[in-house]
């Protein structure tokens, strides 16, 4: 049976390549929305915060877990809305042109 360490390494290498591939072929104008979009994607930290809070036992753990969940939720919703708004800005100009 392959050890967990090697499985972890496989995952990291392949996920890194996926991230690298996605970015190298990007037109300059999408760099900022992509930064914002990837900012949203690491909002998955909220899942970790939920687990940390969900298994917290002492009041201190609960307090820190609570803070983690608040910050994670901020990352998720804020990241989504900001990305949406930036991309919308590109879109708006398109529709305006069609109308003109």
């Amino acid at each position: 049976m392959i050890s967990e360490f090697w499985i972890a390494l496989y995952i990291v290498v392949i996920a890194s390549l996926a991230g690298y591939e996605v970015i190298t072929r990007v037109p300059v104008m999408l760099h900022t929305p992509l930064m914002s979009g990837s900012n949203f994607i690491h909002g998955v930290v909220l899942v970790g915060a939920m687990i940390a809070l969900g298994y917290a036992t002492t009041p201190l753990e609960q307090a820190i877990g609570f803070i983690a969940a608040v910050m994670g939720a901020l990352n998720v919703t804020g990241g989504y809305v900001v990305t949406e708004r930036i991309l919308q800005m590109f879109e708006k100009n398109k529709s305006r042109k069609k109308g003109a």
Partner: peptide, 29 residues
């Protein structure tokens, strides 16, 4: 990257992969 590390500690692979993805894409960017 931090999210990916936490993902390993929590054994949550959604966090590992999403975090690594952002770590790599963000570094390139």
């Amino acid at each position: 990257l931090a999210v990916a590390m936490d993902g390993f500690a929590l054994e949550n692979f959604a966090m590992v992969i999403a975090g690594t993805l952002v770590g790599a894409a963000g570094s390139m960017l």
